[in-house]
Design a protein around this nucleic acid. Structure first.
Lengths: 236, 236, 236, 236
DNA sequence: AATGAATGAGGCTTCATTCAT
DNA sequence: CATGAATGAAGCCTCATTCAT
């Protein structure tokens, strides 16, 4: 069951090139050329380009999913109460940060994840949902217990706000890092970014809930009325 | 200077198709076919596919940029002090939400923005930066005055966290909305989402700053140590 | 509405190569190379290889169908009674033999027709049926009146026996002609073959009808019983 | 000398798939997949795809050839005179109809035979001619004695007319049978078809011989002269 | 100002075959 | 005896672009 050398090399090459140029923009020729492998090998081992794309994700996410499950098991076994929000986030961050450190690049994968969401790869989205829906649901349920004050729908959206922060930032990390390095003379690591993100995420999840019903009534002010518009009072 | 009917129809078609399928995945044939226009018209009027992509963005962002400039003018003219954080966000949201209401779809554009960031369209990123760098810098400066407690680099990253929330959520809105509608029996509008996002963004920007130097020392716990790991204490 | 030079050259090349090597065995590369035309021209002008195959047939059969209709019109206008069997066959033969003599090769087309039947080109068969069903039905109806003594089903099968004779013989004509030339020192033309075929077809159609019901009972003799088997008596 | 199970399964699968889709259109992958056999097995056991095609035919035709030889032996041993035309045809039909009844499908083979003639499988035609030329010649000689009134060349062509009827009809039997079933509410068996074919073949072979020399002079009438054209008088 | 025709490049996939094991 | 892996060639098709009209 050990993946052959050829398979691994194709996956390695595909991973990097997809992350760098996108799926459609990366031809099989380029992948196999970089992997120093016959062009037909992709179709032989994976069946199609789409299947290769999925395989790249599976190789990353399968161990991650397993690891996170195990960590959540530990978490639930160790404490009487449901884990708190901070503990939960720490666990998630730890799983994400540690997992691929072995031989893969986290940034690469985050870019892939960003691509997966933005490029319309319907097949991918479906496959990911069906394959990793369980771990996602499990985490969401723990998050629910850790934030009982949030209505379900509000929690759903905030989770995706957070997800967007992570994926967007990390997937565009190269460009952003260049800017940051230029403007603030610093080089950030992913670990540092995680440190920065944590308090933001915590506060974001604990922010008071806006009264949507009322808010939906409030028309945003047009130009020229800006200074006198009614405050919605979500933040005292 | 009035764009010919052909030009407008191409832009309209391109906008929708790009948002729906991505840039590379949308052929000029499909665009011109949908626009009921000759295949050569794109190259005739725009010069190349890349130029068309840029034109789609300019048509959206030019009025937005102008509008936001005007609102910020009003803001600065009306008050003695620098505008507060909430006012600033309200102004931004108002500009975003109002702008395309004339004849375009905000969601469509947000998907395009998401694509622009994830798909490696180097030319686009450069073009956007040089064309809209001014308004971005202006807003960032106002944000700086509204959040004097934040170090510059921290503010930079948090702004991108927020940006990620917005773009990610809105660009994947269709899919997410379906899930939300199914699980929580509600249909969200973009305006509602903005209402949900505002308090989150406010609190995220105002979250205490983690001590990165120290945090970088802290190794994330491995599996099995989860329950006893040292809390980082970012949130009391 | 005049087909461009490119279109004509593609059709000419395809016609010959298809007849010579079959559909699947003839690549578009070979066709366009012979036609001295760009490889992409086939897809530009016809859309696909299948469409090209159909177009080759249409170019032949459309004029033939029109011509035969006109001849049958003349036939029905000129005589009070329904035309006799021999007249009918003469008309068909004349239409077939005269039609493509202008600039095409009848033998080539007959080979194509043979291919169309034997190679499993489902799409072609359907297309031909729907496009030329009318003229076929019209001819069949006239044949019905010319052979009132035949049951409908018998006529149907005999017509296909005849069709098989024509198509099979003409489609394999090259090979057969070589043999005939070698064994009988003669070179046959298609016109001569038509002369040979006519009396055969006439007598075949007028052969007495076997009693199928009874015949079906009769078991064909096994080996060793040959000399004493019961004659079916269809021909005295 | 017993063919291994693998060989048999490959032949069985190939036979059906070739008949159904043609030679070029049937890939070795499909054959081996249907036979549940390793992809390389074909090349291992047969050497090449062409050799497989030939093997499929040999498996059918070798027993048939043997059987027909034996029947002709019986025929010549049993009667003083040369066998009559009808007896000869009966013998041929009996051999054809009985042979494959063991475990193969006659219709399948007839489709193969049709393909062999129309698809340009040069190698096949040569191979069949050299392998079964003897039995063909023997039958032709008996036919010569049974139809002494026919010139040799005329007999040659009429035999091929007949052959065309058989192969064309049987190779397209599925489609034709559907039509017949729909139009005439009957389901035909191959045996019935043979019953129908016999009188037709008999009369066809016995039809008077056209005067080719003269006929070749006769120009087929053009359109508009149809009703008044000179009859060629082949059938009084 | 606009277009129909044409093209070179390159896309993914499938093929029959080979070879080391 | 049999097979999984691999490969070079070739398949059809689509692409963005150009150009004469």
């Amino acid at each position: 069951m050990v993946p052959s050398d050829t398979v691994t090399r194709i996956l390695d090459a595909a991973e990097v090139l997809f992350a760098e140029h996108g799926f459609s923009e990366t031809s099989l020729r380029r992948i196999t050329s970089r992997a120093e492998v016959n062009l037909a090998a992709v179709n032989y081992h994976f069946g199609s380009k789409q299947a290769l794309i999925q395989a790249v994700f599976f190789r990353y996410l399968d161990p991650f999913s397993t690891d996170l499950h195990r960590r959540l098991n530990d978490l639930e076994a160790g404490e009487a109460d449901a884990p708190g929000l901070e503990t939960l986030l720490d666990t998630l961050f730890a799983s994400v940060l540690e997992m691929p450190s072995e031989n893969h690049d986290l940034r690469t994968f985050m870019k892939l994840l960003g691509l997966a969401y933005s490029q319309t790869q319907g097949h991918l989205r479906d496959e990911l949902r069906s394959r990793y829906g369980d771990i996602f649901s499990r985490f969401l349920e723990l998050l629910r217990r850790a934030t009982p004050e949030l209505p379900d729908d509000e929690r759903f959206w905030r989770l995706h706000f957070m997800l967007g922060s992570v994926i967007f930032t990390l997937s565009g990390l190269n460009a952003l890092r260049d800017i940051a390095a230029h403007d603030y003379h610093q080089r950030v690591t992913i670990r540092e970014l995680a440190q920065r993100l944590k308090p933001v995420a915590l506060h974001a999840l604990r922010a008071p809930v806006a009264d949507i019903g009322a808010a939906a009534m409030v028309d945003y002010p047009s130009r020229g009325q800006v200074t006198s518009h009614a405050r919605t009072g979500t933040h005292s």
